[in-house]
Design a protein around this nucleic acid. Structure first.
Length: 561
RNA sequence: GCGCCCGUAGCUCAGCUGGAUAGAGUACCGCCCUCCGAAGGCGGUGGUCGGGGGUUCGAAUCCCUCCGGGCGCGCCA
């Protein structure tokens, strides 16, 4: 509809230019947006405001001229000029009805567009190292990352979900040592406990499984415990597999699945790291100093140069990072989005700088980043900091067990990722209007219940009859409801474009409010079959939008609650 | 000290990349079930958009500055 109205205005403008009342070469940038208030119609355009100077006319005069030149349309009932020179469009009832028909016809496809044109996009998220259960921060990453993937898929991108992890560095060495200590019966406060060891109870479970010779399956491999506490390498392999498996179980419980798991160690064994170093040297952006090899990242906006190869040998972490991103580029991902915690924001500049230094045609702003801020968990008005299993942090599993998958996903994705997030466990468990998840899901359940009631009354919903009788829906409630569902495709497009999944949650809450108001004032199961079928057609369209919106968030749409 | 993010009703948060009188929920005060789920709906009270400058027809939104809070500033990952 926005595009249609834009086109109408451009036609009007062209007409004015032809008859000479407006210069032919003025810039035509303007915005058409949903109005905030019904008094201003359905859509407003600021064209006259923005172009008045170039046109040499007062905004309201220009608006007047544009409106007079607008082509006639059955979609538009009325056009007003308001305020400083806004052009307000009031849609016709026919246009509203057409929206309902479209939504019902599209069903599950409603809200989907082809703007991505099937291009390849990769979203890397979670990417937790296998040193412990996933914490709430990872949960936020999982929720936001997965919603981004769903949004991009809905807008026509060919999306790959990828999880990158380090299976060989210092943290993993600490994991092996911690597991070894537990296998020998040494606790975190005993003599002989490794410095920087992982203190959580889960290490004990891993050690016991290792000593019992259990087999764990993770990332396509079976690893069996060697039962030998002296074999550090076997301990490491087993512990990594055990924790990867545990993380996968958490992610599955959260409804998140990855297409690719990428191991940092493979970058070394495949020679990608060494290859990247040689390319950077050849590109001329490196130098040696104090026995180390440096990359001149300052040439690409960094505030200081970075060491690539340490004086003692070995690479710093950011070199495999660059090599890894080169593989993403080589795998044909013209678009890559990295979803990470904001505590890693300093790597953004460095990764991009390293990729620019390679001079292999990677665009400057590639990859894109979505960073999320910290999560604090509250219960009974107090911050929750510990979990039994992990000790020092609250795990994603804790939240899922306590409030369920749907509420966890909703709350972790429903806030702007730029903002710190307070996860209120009590609110998430509430089953009433206060809790947006239940409020929205309740919309869906209520509509499903009406469908059952049809049968109980001995009626069946005649869809075609309902669509034919849509003009019976002539109240202000009907109109508001139709306007609310018609916004959905725009919301999906904006949320995908801005990489802001929370917009979907905000919209769904507003939609649910609109529905409940409509529902309370529009009894569906009336004797008049035309009216009954028409009303349920609108309800069914709303149900479809709610279901599709919830699906974008990875939240279920229950038929009863 | 430097960089990034945040500051909107008592509380939790929206505000569609500059638009019209700043919106929801909650809390507080009222009202609505012989009727499809009251797990709901309708009113009312509540704001110097952290402070101060600037840019322009127009600023919660953009720029500068200050104040608060968070996160980063390793030859750790």
């Amino acid at each position: 509809m926005k595009d249609f109205l834009r086109d109408q205005l451009l036609q009007a403008l062209a007409a004015l230019q032809r008859n000479g009342s407006v210069p032919a070469d003025i810039p035509t940038a303007f915005v058409i947006e949903r109005t905030r208030s019904k008094d201003h119609g359905d859509f407003a355009a600021n064209a006259a405001l923005l172009m008045s100077k170039a046109a040499g006319m007062k905004p309201r005069d220009l608006a007047q001229a544009l409106v007079a030149a607008l082509p006639a349309s059955s979609q538009v009932a009325k056009v007003d000029i308001a305020g400083p020179g806004f052009i307000n469009f009031f849609l016709s009832p026919a246009a509203y009805r057409a929206e309902v028909r479209t939504i019902l016809a599209l069903g599950a496809a409603c809200g989907r567009t082809g703007s991505g044109e099937g291009r390849k996009a990769q979203i890397e998220f979670v990417s937790a190292n296998p040193t412990g259960p996933l914490h709430v921060g990872h949960g936020r990453g999982a929720a936001v990352g997965d919603c981004l993937a769903r949004l991009l898929q809905a807008t026509g991108w060919d999306v790959t979900r990828e999880f990158y992890y380090n299976d060989a560095g210092q943290q993993i060495a600490n994991l092996a040592l911690s597991t070894q200590a537990r296998a020998r019966g040494i606790g975190p406060d005993d003599a002989g406990w490794p410095a920087d060891g992982y203190r959580g109870d889960y290490i004990t479970d891993v050690a016991q499984a290792y000593m019992a010779g259990e087999t764990v399956h993770a990332d396509g491999q079976d690893v069996t415990g060697a039962k030998d506490p002296d074999d550090l390498d076997a301990l490491r392999r087993f512990a990594v597999a055990a924790l990867r498996r545990e993380q996968d179980l958490d992610l599955r419980a959260f409804g998140v699945e990855f297409d690719v798991y990428y191991l940092e160690s493979s970058l070394y064994t495949d020679g990608k790291v060494e290859e990247t170093v040689q390319q950077l040297i050849a590109a001329g952006h490196t130098y040696e100093q104090d026995g180390a090899l440096w990359l001149r990242t300052t040439e690409f906006g960094d505030d200081k140069d970075r060491v690539m190869r340490k004086a003692q040998g070995g690479y710093t972490y950011f070199l495999p990072d660059i090599a890894y991103h080169v593989t993403k580029w080589q795998r044909g991902f013209g678009r890559v989005i990295n979803e990470q915690g904001a505590d890693h924001h300093s790597t953004v500049m460095r990764v991009r700088a390293g990729l620019q230094a390679l001079d292999i045609g990677i665009p400057k702003g590639w990859p894109e980043y979505v960073l999320h801020q910290m999560v604090t968990v509250m219960r009974d008005g107090e911050e929750v900091k510990l979990s039994k299993r992990a000790g020092s942090y609250v795990t994603l599993r804790d939240l899922i067990d306590e409030v369920g998958r749907d509420a966890t996903r909703w709350f972790l994705a429903a806030r702007k990722s730029d903002s710190q997030l307070t996860f209120d466990i009590d609110l998430a468990r509430t089953r009433n209007r206060e809790n947006p998840v239940y409020y929205v899901q309740y919309t869906h359940a209520r509509i499903c219940r009406v469908r059952e009631k049809f049968a109980e009354q001995g009626w069946t919903w005649n869809r075609d009859n309902g669509l034919a009788a849509l003009e019976r829906l002539d109240t202000a409630y009907d109109q508001d409801m139709m306007a609310a569902i018609a916004r959905f495709p725009e919301i999906v497009e904006i949320a995908a474009r801005n990489l802001e999944p929370h917009l979907v949650a905000t919209y769904l809450t507003e939609l649910a409010a609109a529905f409940h108001t409509w529902y309370d004032n529009s009894h569906i199961l009336v004797e008049d079959a035309d009216l009954r079928d028409a009303r349920f057609a609108l309800a069914e369209a709303a149900r479809s939008v709610v279901a599709n919106g919830l699906d974008l968030l990875g939240v279920s749409a229950p038929e009863s609650m």
